[in-house]
């Protein structure tokens, strides 16, 4: 039982949007789908959801073709938010849920519960267009999950949320995962993925660059990261060591990347020899560092209000 995407290919005119995309999402996991604008995230999701047919390749869930499953096992939150602007919040939530077979009464109750949980219960009877963007996005999320889908695909769910709402959404996602749901979301905010995802995949120009458990992906380049804070405040000597590159110099600590083959412990020993040490840390590179190294600088699709809250 897993979501398996096998060698998907899709061409739009002159553009090869997907060029053999393969993925495996374990059930009950949160899976991060990372890539720049136009890398193929949305197209992959649309194909997984049978909204679009691939030119080639297959998608299966639990061994059966994805399109053969009833629609109610899928939840989808598109990147372009889509709700009826002039309809009351509660009315459209009930409408969407009934399309998946939820009864009106059950949908109404569940919708009110979720609205209360996201602290927008007082907006239930108001027209959607009167809500702030952040609140609209929370309504969109509720619309995606009211029918309790087994597999949840979300395109950039965190874009446009302030830090408080990011926190609410994250705890909601974690709760859904703990209830056994499988969650796939795309993002270009790599801190979010790092903090939340059990596994990730990096996609670029329609190809999967790397994928796997988050920890393995972070180690996939072979680099390690050391963070050093000397009592003298001077850690400039780090950059003079063989295979070590300072990536962040600061008053509090200095961060450096250690090339594959260089033992990070050697850096630590060198620090101790230099004088009193306040902080010494060996860590995996962040997803962002891995991404930059494998793909190049990420193009922000939209500036976010949430600069990596909680990361």
């Amino acid at each position: 039982m897993a979501l398996e995407v096998d060698r998907l290919r899709k061409r739009f005119g002159a553009v090869q949007a997907l060029d053999g995309v393969s993925l495996r999402v374990e059930p009950g996991q949160i899976f991060g789908f990372l890539g720049s604008n136009g890398a193929g995230k949305t197209t992959t999701m649309r194909i997984v959801l049978s909204l679009m047919r691939p030119d080639d390749g297959t998608v299966t869930w639990d061994g059966r073709p994805a399109h053969a499953w009833p629609r109610r096992i899928w939840g989808y939150m598109p990147e372009e938010r889509g709700l009826y602007a002039r309809m009351a919040v509660i009315d459209q939530l009930v409408h969407f849920a009934t399309l998946y077979g939820v009864t009106r009464a059950a949908a109404r109750k569940a919708a009110l519960d979720w609205l209360a949980r996201f602290r927008i219960a007082e907006h239930a009877g108001r027209r959607l267009e009167t809500l702030s963007k952040g609140n609209q996005q929370k309504v969109q999320f509720i619309a995606t999950i009211l029918h309790e889908p087994d597999v949840l695909l979300m395109d950039e769910p965190f874009v446009g949320l302030d830090p408080i709402n990011v926190k609410m959404l994250r705890s909601a996602l974690l709760e859904l995962r703990d209830r056994g749901r499988t969650i796939v979301f795309s993002t270009h905010q790599l801190e979010q993925a790092e903090a939340l995802c059990d596994s990730v995949a990096i996609i670029d120009h329609g190809r999967i660059v790397t994928s796997g458990p988050t920890r393995e992906v972070r180690r996939s380049t072979g680099h390690r990261v050391v963070r050093v804070a000397m009592e003298s405040g001077d850690a400039g000597w780090l950059g003079e060591m063989e295979g070590v590159t300072v990536t962040r110099g600061g008053a509090d600590y200095t961060e450096a990347r250690v090339a594959p083959g260089v033992d990070p412990q050697a850096v630590l020993r060198a620090a101790v020899r230099r004088g009193p040490v306040l902080r010494l840390e060996v860590a995996d590179p962040s997803l962002e560092e891995v991404f930059v190294e494998l793909v190049g600088a990420i193009e922000a699709e939209e500036q976010t209000l949430a600069p990596g809250a909680g990361a």
């Binding site: 909204l51 899928w74 989808y76 598109p78 372009e80 889509g82 009826y84 969407f96 399309l99 029918h147």
Partner: peptide
């Protein structure tokens, strides 16, 4: 209207 507001994609997942 549904296309312009992108509701279409949400609905097409269900119907």
């Amino acid at each position: 209207e549904e296309k312009a507001s992108r509701v279409m994609e949400v609905i097409l997942n269900a119907a």
